[in-house]
Simulated assay, not measured.
Amino acid sequence: MDTALPELPPAVAQPTSPAGHPWVLRDWGRVPWPQSAEAMQAFTAARGPETPDELWLAEHDPVFTQGTAGRPEHVLAAGDIPVRPSNRGGQVTYHGPGQVLAYPLLDLRRRGYFVKELVHRIEEAVLRTLAELGVTAHRVVGAPGLYVRLADPFGHARLPPAAPGEDPFRGLGKIAALGLKISRQGSYHGVALNVAMDLAPFGRIDPCGYVGLHTVDLASLGVVVEPTAVARSLATHLIRQLD
């Protein structure tokens, strides 16, 4: 692969985290998924010990991406939406307009933590972003991402662990999906937060490999907000949580 770094959108900010870590924040706007995926891979291959960590925000044209654990039977009826292989972890998911993508490109050696903690920190940033909008999201053990109670997305009751043999997703809808790639101690890919989407394409797949998993967005929960506002909030929380 040619690791020459492609042209990147200009930095919209160069924030410093509360712990003093420098960041570069870039907003790709709406961009085809393969373009940003190839740019992330090239950036990670080219970065050196002094390269600042970056956070990329994006929105994508409709696409199904199939992670390294993906199985073709989980793509039920792709139709006119392309299916692209991805080197992130996990299985199939959908990206499309009205969804906020946040891609933290981190030097994990410099940060001093490993993948499990990185996942937890990204999830925490999403939890706090949603909480600002009044939505209570939950983690499900063994299923990265964030989920809401379909019957009470604004309630604050804790989510009890599923009993043995019980469907862990019963009564839940997935609002954010997470998938990462680590190369040379650098992380890329990231998290997708559903804001105001056409949710129908999720019915053409088993989202993240789970048969019948319900998918929601903020709009379907009755929360009317612009994706750009959610992206700004998520970026702020990610920079704080990833210190």
Rank of each mutant, 00 (worst) to 15 (best):
I122R: 07
G142P: 09
R84M: 12
Q35N: 12
G67V: 10
N194Q: 04
V211D: 07
G98I: 11
E123Y: 04
G70M: 02
A58C: 11
A200I: 01
G165H: 05
L159K: 10
P6L: 08
L130T: 12
F154N: 06
R170S: 12
S233N: 06
F64V: 06
W56T: 02
N87P: 11
P207V: 01
L221N: 10
P144V: 07
E59D: 02
G70Q: 02
L172H: 08
T215C: 15
G173Y: 00
I239Y: 12
R149K: 14
A163V: 00
D198V: 06
E38N: 14
R204W: 01
W28N: 08
P22E: 11
L133T: 04
P104I: 10
P97C: 01
V140G: 02
A69F: 09
V223C: 13
G70A: 14
K181V: 02
T3K: 11
R84P: 00
R71I: 09
Y113A: 07
F43W: 15
L127E: 14
A19P: 11
G48P: 10
R204S: 01
A131Y: 00
A77G: 00
G79K: 01
V75E: 08
G209F: 00
G96S: 03
Q185F: 13
C208R: 03
R47N: 12
L101E: 13
L180V: 10
N194W: 04
V230L: 09
T228N: 12
I122D: 00
V230A: 03
G179W: 09
G171F: 06
L25D: 14
A137E: 04
S183P: 01
A177K: 08
I81S: 06
L25R: 14
H74A: 02
F154T: 09
A231K: 13
L5W: 11
T51I: 06
